[in-house]
């Protein structure tokens, strides 16, 4: 049976506005950047606000969590043995498991920065040009060694055992630090974490500034997204770079004005609620025996790693 639908309705769309892939950045590229940044900001905000729903360690005092976190971070930076770093990595992995956090998702987030900052940046240090030592693999043989200015290029360039150890140590250190940071982020909400920082005698003024900035960022982020959607709707196809620069600079100015307005409104709201220039942060619960026991265990285990 022949279709009665008119042919123009069956015709595939030919006039799609495609993003400019020729190398010249257009609105879609900027839009993509803004929407991606806004998306990751929102994801992290939800994560930071809803953290603390994990099984183990949820009821621990955040002060103990933050103190333990900083102590272990310092231990990670002090430990130079590769075996100790591996053991620390296993310990953090176990803490993730016991916390009931989804391992695969978290380790995907850990591996990228660990690979970029821990491996890629340090990998040239495995070469004998930077770390002389016992050669385990030759990459290039030159006719002779070269000297220019303050640099020396040996006749044989390759990977050394000592260089590999340096790369492994740096990779593991970055990997463990990122893992530990994410463990804290996933197990303690940002507001509780911030209050816990008071234990280090950080002035309340500064904590309040951090807290307000944290809130403002997500309010402004929504504004950025909405204004870009509005800007995008005014343009079809590609836009000249000069025009685009004006648009972006204009949006930044708009965000500045919006920020000022938000600040005025926040200040008015604070005044109406009795703000007189003094900041009072609600104190966390008192330390219990269980919290002190956990702190003692962390201090002991951390010290143990220094002597392995």
């Amino acid at each position: 049976m022949r279709s009665k639908i008119p042919p123009f309705l069956l015709q595939k769309e030919q006039h799609k506005i495609s993003p400019d892939l020729s190398g010249s950045p257009g609105v879609p590229a900027i839009d993509r950047t803004v929407s991606n940044a806004a998306k990751s900001l929102k994801t992290m905000y939800i994560q930071a606000e809803s953290a603390g729903n994990s099984r183990t360690g949820n009821d621990l005092n955040p002060i103990i969590k933050v103190v333990s976190f900083i102590y272990i971070l310092v231990i990670i930076s002090l430990v130079s043995s590769i075996v100790s770093q591996l053991l620390l990595g296993c310990l953090i992995f176990l803490l993730f498991v016991f916390s009931g956090i989804r391992i695969s998702g978290v380790y995907k987030k850990i591996l990228l920065p660990a690979f970029l900052f821990g491996f890629l940046v340090s990998v040239p240090a495995s070469l004998n040009v930077i770390t002389p030592g016992d050669m385990i693999f030759t990459i290039l043989s030159l006719k002779k060694s070269y000297d220019f200015w303050i640099y020396h290029i040996p006749g044989e360039i390759g990977i050394t055992l000592q260089g590999c150890k340096i790369v492994a140590r740096l990779f593991l250190r970055v990997f463990n630090s990122v893992s530990l940071s994410l463990l804290l982020v996933y197990s303690t909400s940002f507001p509780r974490m911030l209050k816990a920082f008071g234990v280090f005698h950080i002035p309340d003024t500064l904590l309040m500034v951090i807290w307000l900035a944290y809130k403002f960022i997500f309010i402004l982020c929504k504004t950025v997204e909405e204004t870009f959607l509005a800007v995008k709707s005014r343009f079809i196809g590609n836009v000249k770079n000069q025009v685009l620069r004006k648009i972006v600079a204009g949006r930044i100015y708009f965000i500045y004005n919006k920020s000022l307005l938000t600040y005025e409104q926040t200040y008015a709201a604070m005044i109406s609620r009795g703000y007189e220039g003094k900041i009072i942060l609600v104190a966390e619960n008192r330390l219990r025996g269980k919290d002190l026991l956990v702190l003692f265990c962390v201090l002991f285990v951390g010290a143990l790693f220094l002597f392995i």
């Binding site: 950047t33 900035a213 403002f216 402004l220 950025v224 965000i255």
Partner: peptide
């Protein structure tokens, strides 16, 4: 707080 949020947001913008 607003200035800090503004500086954070500025880092989000890519300019051609």
């Amino acid at each position: 707080g607003m200035a800090a949020a503004f500086s954070f947001i500025i880092m989000m913008f890519n300019l051609p």
